[in-house]
């Protein structure tokens, strides 16, 4: 008892009191569910009481096998891959271009463009999804626009399983490019202007400023953006749910939607849904580690 009292100092009490609320809430709704999800993915649980239910058995990796044999898993994974490609090779380069053009005042009214280009990011994904669904639908402006060039053009974007993903990819590019622009812009502004000035006075061309000063200074941010893009593209759900619900014939599904359908539509299959989410977590971690390794190998110079 005496020992405990000397250990139980004001410092320790304060620490506990300060840390406890955050830790409790966070562990209850994030850390525990993650572990729970892993466990559940290896059982045969299918509704009813979870805790203390004698019928729940350990089934190992059965649901993972089933997932890998499901064609919708591969369709969804492919769509996630396409979204990732648009994010990495569309959003990030375009975002950089806009940031560079605005920062170096290559274009007038920079702050107007900056405000406008970021605007889509603040609108609810549900509104954006419904808006663009209407925009691309047979009664929307897109059809009108195409018919101006090609009279009688029929809009089959919503029915053709091969084309249906294209509007989705476009909207993803539309919506999040501004986010990368803002990130790059904030970091371009951190570069000491006198550095650029000195380089220009010493006769460096603008191209050299770009490649010798700006790119190296931004390399860390580019890596962060890549990680953000990878994690973000695996997360995509709301937008597609609002725009296409994964249709036609689940051809625009993504992993998150595939999991949602498995868990909450028709007859729920919770273990399979948890296998899918575990796969998503693993994939996300793996890709992020890969980016880090690439950075360590080739990034080199910046601190």
């Amino acid at each position: 008892m005496k020992r405990f009292l000397t250990w139980w100092t004001e410092e320790r009490r304060a620490y506990l009191l300060l840390v406890l609320p955050g830790v409790l809430v966070y562990w209850a709704v994030m850390a525990f569910p993650t572990v729970f999800s892993l466990g559940l993915s290896m059982t045969n649980y299918n509704g009813g009481v979870i805790f203390g239910n004698p019928n729940i058995q350990f089934v190992g990796l059965k649901h993972y096998m089933r997932m890998f044999n499901d064609q919708y898993f591969w369709i969804s994974l492919k769509n996630n891959g396409l979204i990732m490609a648009v994010s990495l090779f569309g959003q990030i380069p375009l975002g950089f271009l806009f940031a560079y053009v605005i920062h170096r005042k290559l274009i007038k009214f920079g702050s107007f463009f900056q405000t406008t280009l970021y605007l889509p990011c603040v609108i609810s994904t549900i509104v954006v999804g419904r808006l663009w669904q209407a925009f691309f639908s047979p009664y929307g402006p897109f059809t009108k626009f195409m018919q101006r060039f090609q009279p009688g053009w029929e809009n089959e974007l919503a029915y053709d399983p091969k084309l249906a993903i294209i509007p989705v990819l476009f909207v993803i590019l539309w919506m999040y490019t501004g986010q990368y622009m803002i990130i790059f812009l904030a970091n371009l502004q951190k570069i000491d202007p006198s550095l650029i000035e000195a380089a220009r006075i010493d006769g460096a061309s603008e191209w050299q400023v770009l490649t010798r000063i700006m790119f190296p200074a931004l390399s860390g941010v580019i890596v962060t953006s890549a990680i953000l893009a990878i994690a973000g593209s695996l997360k995509s759900f709301d937008l597609i749910y609002a725009m296409t619900s994964g249709n036609p014939a689940r051809r625009t599904s993504v992993l998150a939607l595939y999991m949602y359908d498995t868990a909450f539509k028709h007859s729920p299959n919770y273990p399979l849904a948890n296998s899918i989410s575990m796969f998503m977590v693993l994939l996300s971690f793996t890709l992020i580690v890969l980016v880090r390794i690439t950075e360590a190998r080739f990034g080199g110079r910046e601190e």
């Binding site: 955050g22 966070y26 562990w27 850390a31 729970f36 805790f51 994690a231 971690f285």
Partner: peptide
């Protein structure tokens, strides 16, 4: 444990959260 949480997404905990809420 919090820093790891930055990488976790809602999708990975959606089903457990639903089951926990019901329970």
């Amino acid at each position: 444990s919090f820093v790891i949480g930055i990488l976790l997404t809602l999708q990975s905990i959606m089903v457990p959260l639903f089951l926990m809420a019901v329970a």
